[in-house]
Design a protein around this nucleic acid. Structure first.
Lengths: 308, 308
DNA sequence: CCAATTTCATAACGTAAAGTTATATTGGTT
DNA sequence: AACCAATATAACTTTACGTTATGAAATTGG
């Protein structure tokens, strides 16, 4: 026989409170209401749940056993309410974030780390991808937030774009690089050194080609290609190679005195770093919190970069 | 915010079944019914519980978490139903049984032991007492069943009496007692031996006095008084003393070749052994089972005794 | 890419029961 | 015996469950 879980909850409250009236108060209902609910439950069970003609209303053996199950139901209900509250306030949940490898490792990951210390109950599922995959994952709702460099004009209507950093690339080298000591660097200086290229299908690779095309470098020696940011940095710091990197990444690395940017002006890409979400869809409160957090942190970073 | 536990149950069923329609089947409800219940729940929660525009209806993070709580509620409900079923069938519960010490230890306890092997989920709370206390405990609902010797006419209206054995006392002695070998025993033989008496406030003690008065014995030597059945038996088997015991008790002990009854006719008491319950009150199914079990066993015992 | 099919949502309506206030009963107490 | 607090009952309103019928949307298969 199927019992109404609400009846079991009421039974548990009465047993716990030690009386029907007190139980009613505990439940925030009127006394006659819970009285009748108990009657209904007793009718269905077919056995008395309370000792008859006993005034401080004592449960029978069966009443006590059922009240225990009612308590479990109450507990589960309370836990559910707690979950909802936390979720609605954006204090719990899971967010699927992905972005281009260099940006994610170089800049975003530390911001996410900061976010997690503030919100330990929010789980971040991070992954990597290049713009086209990222957009299709967002579109297919396999992803909540994508962080990538994109031309604002290229953002389709189904997406929402929040710019967090203007695009700005620099030529990067190790901190103690011979060229790094010079006040100004000329094109002729650059051609002497070999180059490190990011993976061929990455946006940065196109930036690298555009940049070098732009400043007239035609035949560049590529000594290393592919790999993650840490691979690039390792090769860069262990040699006199050069590469093109977003200034924000170099800026973060400068703090550890490993990389530096050459004092030479190159064309900025028309892509800007930003967060892409699906527009029109319901956004979870925790996702909203993360986006606001990222925007705030990058405002601060932008100010630091401008001051530098 | 308080959520309806039934909604959480429905959510759990849908998630478990892998779809709204299947969930409806699982719950034994119509599909529109559960559909609307989910809508109501989503309205109250204020967050989507299922991915929109996904047809095999996949739960969101929060939906999944709430479904888990719903599962706990379902489990508790099922357990409650199981408890009720067992209780109604008399397969579970607790019964408070008490009786006069000699009867309980000598006859009833072995019957109860048999009952418990048949119904391991029924707990028997056994205790001892003399008729007056037993009746007042039954009256005050501190006891479910009392087993005692009583005159059927003395049973008040508030009680229900089921006789299980006619009253019949015998003079008992150890198996190898000198008198036990005789074909017939005369009054003169008896007076040579000392007597063991049950506690002075027990019905058996009155039976002893009545019996001896009836057969003309005036000055009896009492060598031991009080104690439980096992104490009486121990003294009896370790000496040539005599005592008065219900024949049923002696009959049970005869099987172990420890006691025997003297072949001398004494007056039967007007009390009969039976079960007392409160009349008019609801009797639990397990109590009913126990009473029937006892009646059945004693019918068999009675037949054995008559055959002997 | 369109039709067929599956899956879910909505509509309309009857009914069960939860909720309320007011009032009657009944153990327990002094 | 009488009073008091706790529980039960009565009468009525409102909510929402459950039903069948039907509509809309997404997936599937050719």
């Amino acid at each position: 026989m199927k019992l109404d879980p609400r009846h079991l909850e009421i039974l548990a409250a009465i047993v716990q409170a030690g009386g029907l009236s007190e139980g009613a108060v505990l439940l925030g209902k009127s006394q006659p209401s819970v009285s009748r609910s108990v009657s209904l439950l007793e009718d269905r069970v077919g056995e008395p749940l309370f000792q008859p003609t006993r005034r401080p209303l004592q449960p029978t053996e069966l009443g006590l056993a059922l009240a225990q199950e009612g308590q479990r139901i109450l507990d589960a209900g309370r836990q559910a309410s707690r979950l909802v509250d936390e979720y609605r306030q954006g204090l719990a949940g899971a967010i699927r974030v992905a972005g281009t490898p260099i940006f994610m490792d170089g800049v975003i990951s530390s911001v996410i780390a900061e976010f997690q210390t503030e919100h330990p109950n929010i789980r971040i599922d991070q992954s990597y991808g290049y713009p086209s995959e990222l957009l299709s994952k967002i579109s297919g709702e396999a992803l909540d937030v994508a962080i990538l460099p994109i031309r604002p004009a290229d953002v389709a209507d189904e997406f929402e774009f929040r710019q967090i950093l203007p695009g700005r690339n620099v030529i990067a080298c190790r901190a103690g690089h011979p060229l790094a000591r010079k006040k100004t660097v000329k094109l002729e200086d650059i051609t002497d050194y070999s180059w490190i290229a990011p993976p061929a299908n990455s946006p940065l690779f196109r930036d690298l080609r555009n940049t070098l095309d732009g400043i007239g470098v035609r035949d560049l020696k590529i000594s290393f290609t592919g790999g993650s940011l840490s691979a690039v940095v390792n090769v860069l710091t262990g040699s006199d190679s050069l590469t093109v990197l977003p200034f924000s990444v170099v800026f973060m690395m400068q703090r550890q005195k490993t990389l530096t940017a050459l004092p030479i002006k190159i064309g900025d890409p028309d892509r800007h770093l930003g967060c892409i979400t699906l527009s029109g869809r319901h956004m979870s409160a925790s996702t909203h919190r993360l986006l606001e957090f990222i925007e705030r942190k990058f405002e601060m970073l932008d100010r630091l970069i401008c001051d530098a």
